[in-house]
Design a protein around this nucleic acid. Sequence first.
DNA 1: TTGAAAGCGGTACCAC
DNA 2: GTGGTACCGCTTTCAA
Lengths: 343, 343
Amino acid sequence: MNLKELAASLNLSQTTVSRALNGYPEVRAETRARVEAAAKAANYQPNSRARRLATGRAMTIGHVIPLSDQHQMVNPIFSDFLAGAGETYAREGYDLLLSIVPAGEVEAAYHKLATNGSVDGLMIQGPRTEDSRIATLQEIGLPFIVHGRSADPEGYSWLDIENRAAFQQATDLLLDLGHRRIALLNGQEYFDFASRRRRGFEHALAARGLTADPSLVFEAEMTEEFGYRSASTLMQSDDPPTAYLTSSILIAFGVRRAAVEAGLSLGRDVSVVTHHDGLSYLKNEGGRPDFTATRSSIQSAGRRAAEILIELTRAPDNGPVQELWPVELTLGQSTGPVPNRHP
Amino acid sequence: MNLKELAASLNLSQTTVSRALNGYPEVRAETRARVEAAAKAANYQPNSRARRLATGRAMTIGHVIPLSDQHQMVNPIFSDFLAGAGETYAREGYDLLLSIVPAGEVEAAYHKLATNGSVDGLMIQGPRTEDSRIATLQEIGLPFIVHGRSADPEGYSWLDIENRAAFQQATDLLLDLGHRRIALLNGQEYFDFASRRRRGFEHALAARGLTADPSLVFEAEMTEEFGYRSASTLMQSDDPPTAYLTSSILIAFGVRRAAVEAGLSLGRDVSVVTHHDGLSYLKNEGGRPDFTATRSSIQSAGRRAAEILIELTRAPDNGPVQELWPVELTLGQSTGPVPNRHP
DNA sequence: TTGAAAGCGGTACCAC
DNA sequence: GTGGTACCGCTTTCAA
């Protein structure tokens, strides 16, 4: 059943039926009701291809994922963000076009999506400190929003969290508890969020006249394995850290495993603060550890980023929208004393 | 630059230009070359919306993910499969429409995607033993393929692995090693793959006159936490199992953590076989355990499923395509002896 | 308040 | 081998 047939069955013109269905005000209420009833009865769905052509809008948002960064897809953050964004798209009647391309072909994909009119806007994830995607998109002129930002956060829309402040605060907490040897297990620092986190860490130390011990700072893909290996090494060293600050729950899981193997208890022998859904202080006393926070804040970020992006596609001439979200620090019931140096 | 303008600039008709660009044979080689050169110079991209309307094909495959099964998205299998499928779509010129909907609205989403012509085919993941999506799609008449299958595997296309045989084989291996108390940590058995795996497990036991001890069989969402909790409990029991067969690497990770806490070594004190990329026998002797297999087989499955699905959209009248893939068992260097009952 | 008709940008049939 | 033209199904201006 298409519009023409529906109109014929109602003895109305396509025009009127179209207007009735799309909420135009000039349609008489009675007519609209009649049309809506018939559309429902016939289970009429406007053909999206025809509508897209006629309106010139794709009603589609693109997410382009580089394949070699496939690890990114494994990262739970990625899928949670996607779930949140997808929720908004569905609510607003937008489709999500997921394009998985070899790394190095991302910007070519942008050009193609833009010129063949497949999408109205693009979502950018995982920005680097220097990220050429941003300049490319500005040049193309397609609306886009970045989850995170680059070193230069001017002239485009983004939604980011207070990475620097959060890690400064977390470091302060550990310093307040008396810790002096704190390890930082960070994501790869070419990602902007990671470099901001490191700066927060260093800043908190500097504020107390301390400097980061380079042998306690690691950066790598944020896996459990990375946390395990680096924490294991550190725990066997002569002067092991008493606290760990990590950039991901997976890294913290690895630290936990290393601690268990070393016979240490999180929250008693060694302190761990990790970024996850906000920041969490981890411990494994008293049964179930508090690792199981939902990642609701990341879903929220996805929802909000999608909202902003859709707004941008509707009013592309508005200035950039930039939102900086605070990060909450969730403490376990007991943050524990400064651990003694373990045997 | 659209087709009309391109044609005008060449003093040719739209028809000829279109034919030249789309590889129709009747175009003179010289003309075609001229057209192609001009198209390239002008960076011409055919408008995908117009093309879709004119051809009546969406050139798009839909993946519909239920949101409450959002855990599914966290599951690495999900994203690996997606990455593989996405690769094929890109190669074949198809778009991937990812639709994230509340659980319970999945079939409504199918109807909508079908009637508004947004997709040419649908990819179905995570089939249940009884899965109403399949009947719904058969009724709708949209091409689809299932990754996995339901209890009744007739009349539709699917790509599955030999779950039953694999778990039977794995159980046989453990029995051959002398194990008699083997725990099965399975996925939720309303998923068809999980029920097949359980049957393989039970069948191997039955073939030796043994029956599964119900207190050693668990099913749950396949998380690390599940593996940890169930293995911890079992390891503290009076008569703990000497071997674990698990349905996911995450579960195996949980078993590993429980083992470490209990002072047991994988591959020496306790045997673990898990499904991951094929089946793997896990151990943690001699440094790095062999947990780090790539999930390439799942990506391959995604690629192949996408190929079949695209083929189905092109020739919807062909009979169903059904492929059953074997599962390889990868042994560690040492599978270890039957563990002594631990203290 | 409703309808006729001209697009939107291609594709594909039918002539020449 | 090339061109004219009628669609594809909907939106949107313009007239009535």
